[in-house]
Amino acid sequence: MSVLRVAPRTAVVLALASAAALATFTWPFFIPAHPESTARTGEAPLVFLVMLPVLVALVLAELSSGGIDSKALAMLGVLAAVNAALRPLGAGTAGIETVFFLLVLAGRVFGPGFGFLLGSTSLFASALLTAGVGPWLPFQMLCASWVGLGAGLLPARLRGRAEVAVLAGYGAFAAYGYGLLMNLWFWPFSLGADTQLSYVAGAPVLDNLHRFAVFTAVTSTFGWDTGRAITTAVAVVLAGPAVLAALRRAARRAAFDAPVTFAAPAPQPAPSAATPVPGAPVAASGDVTGPAVGVAPSARRGLDEQSATAEEGGQGGGSHQAPQRPAD
């Protein structure tokens, strides 16, 4: 399913912006020795540092230009909060990275557009909470967004063990890719201009690629990135099925796909204001006030699967019937 519809125009904007954004990572490979177009070689990194935040903002605005459904937006905010809370758990311990696990699973369940937004909002919220805003943030946001987008684009038909296996493999791949791109971004800044591992403006692409490969292998691939890939894959395998079930249950309860129709008011007593499930209009027979409102018949199975875990946590399995606190 896809919570956020990606219109063709949005897809084109996304592709164009991603292509331009990729250049802000890979410019050391291609930058000419004496660019006529820029006054000084030193300007190129600054131009890209300014350009990328604008590109990220453009894509985010375009993705949400159709208006995000309130349920999708609340889900986005809550999942971003969970991700932001998970992130510091791994910081400090070398290579334990806990962000990608939920990002991959949520992107898988809620679709590519939602995955993209979740990647950006998660890292932005996490940066604000632990105060890590800096020039690196837009680059991290974009990389994480690509990870979420890719998870949403995996083949939809897979279920069960095959799905978990594919997700674990993708998580490991994405973890390596993220590390590689962030290294590539940091490469010119961490080394400066004249060590043997620095990029050489105007050198052949393969030559620079070789230097970068050595740099990334020496600094992080075998330590940090491998740790991140293993953590993500193991977390997906261990907790994946249960988390996928929880996310799918939430998606069914929210009834994102339901067309909202308005019917003439029936002469029934008015329902209480706090109808627990906002997706109420789905109920096919117009039974708006029944106790099981909004839980489509197909969703029952999901609820039953879930009740065991929910009871274990002291939720009583009846959280969907409990009076809801008004959120502020």
């Binding site: 309130s70 349920k71 937006l73 609340a74 889900m75 905010g77 809550v78 999942l79 909060a81 969970v82 907790a239 249960a242 988390v243 929880a246 996310l247 249950r249 939430a250 309860r253 929210a254 204001a273 706090a274 109808t275 627990p276 499930v277 906002p278 879930q306 875990t309 929910a310 274990e312 946590g313 002291g314 939720q315 959280s319 969907h320 809801q324 606190r325 008004p326 959120a327 502020d328």
Partner: peptide, 25 residues
């Protein structure tokens, strides 16, 4: 970890639906 993490996640997801209803209203 499973006994704590999954109920917390389910709680957060339920909370998001309540929040959406509040935003709609």
């Amino acid at each position: 970890l499973r006994g704590i993490a999954l109920p917390v996640l389910a709680d957060a997801l339920d909370r998001s639906l309540a929040l959406a209803a509040a935003m709609d209203s």
